[in-house]
């Protein structure tokens, strides 16, 4: 029972992290039609920005996390505005650009910080106990911040003019433009929003998991997995799938160990892609 509830807590906590990553990823795909291969890179960058702010600038951790969000958001904004925008309608070119950016970012981090994982512990330690249930405080903090960020994103997307415009652009770009939404203004914003979320996740999670220049690879794989499972471009689907992936991962690693869970998820995703490419909660999306 203790093991069961423990796995549940780990799963939900993982799910919240994956949700932040997957929401950003699916936002970029839904609105811009771009598969963002640099998503893991922004996660990794977020971790390193936070680390530098704490250990080189001496900032308190919460401010470092904020700095990471702004740095990754700003880089995402500029990348979309200056580079991606030029080839935005060619899906192969946009994919190559994000791939190129990822290679550059991870190499730059490798050059600056070296291949060895820096010592970057989470500032809160200890645990919260209630009977048989035992939750590390760091997980609780991460969970709380992730839930707030998800709520904030939903508020932005579903109750502001900007969010309405972004969702309209995702549904039908031409008609949205004819209603006066300007892709040149909104696309960089959407991209920045998504990369900022990836940076936030990185800043929050890398102190608990690990920080190294190659930490973006598995993050990209998980984002893919989650987003395909939920249906490319679907926000609700991504959030739901993130928790499914997190919980499946937690339980299989507790009860079976190793990579069985990952294999099961990947094969599930393959089957979904082939037979139901719109995902769990998916809908038809425009040709991409």
């Amino acid at each position: 029972m203790e093991q069961f509830s423990q796995a549940m807590i780990i799963g939900v906590s993982l799910g919240a992290q994956y949700a932040l990553l997957a929401l950003g990823f699916t936002l970029i795909f839904g609105i811009l039609g771009v598969v963002n291969f640099s998503h893991g890179g922004f996660y990794m960058l977020g971790g390193y920005v936070a680390y530098s702010c704490v250990y080189h600038l001496g900032l308190p951790y919460p401010l470092a996390v904020l700095a990471a969000v702004f740095a990754t958001g700003a880089l995402g904004y500029l990348f979309e505005l200056v580079l991606l925008e030029r080839v935005i309608d060619d899906h192969l070119s946009t994919l190559m650009l994000t791939l190129g950016l990822y290679l550059i970012v991870s190499t730059a981090v490798l050059l600056i910080f070296g291949p060895v994982s820096p010592e970057f512990p989470f500032p809160v330690s200890g645990a919260w106990r209630a009977g048989p249930i035992y939750v590390p405080l760091e997980n609780l903090v991460v969970l709380a911040v992730c839930v707030c960020a998800i709520a904030g994103l939903y508020a932005l997307l579903f109750s502001t003019d900007l969010g309405r415009g972004l969702r309209a652009l995702a549904d039908d770009r031409d008609v949205a433009m004819a209603q006066g939404m300007r892709p040149k203004l909104l696309f960089p914003l959407a991209f920045a929003l998504a990369t900022g979320l990836a940076g936030l996740t990185g800043a929050l999670v890398t102190p608990i998991l690990s920080l190294s220049p190659s930490v973006g690879d598995p993050v990209l794989a998980t984002s893919f997995l989650t987003v395909i499972l939920g249906g490319l471009g679907s926000l609700g689907g991504a959030a739901l799938a993130a928790f499914v992936v997190g919980i499946v991962e937690a339980y299989t690693s507790v009860y079976f160990g190793g990579s069985v869970g990952a294999l099961v998820l990947f094969i599930l995703v393959l089957v979904i892609l082939v037979f139901r490419p719109t995902g769990l909660l998916g809908r038809e999306i425009r040709g991409a």
């Binding site: 309405r164 969702r167 309209a168 995702a170 549904d171 039908d172 008609v175 949205a176 809908r283």
Partner: peptide, 10 residues
């Protein structure tokens, strides 16, 4: 527009 083209998810 022709074919209405409402935003389906909104």
């Amino acid at each position: 527009p022709e074919g209405r083209r409402v935003f389906p998810t909104l």
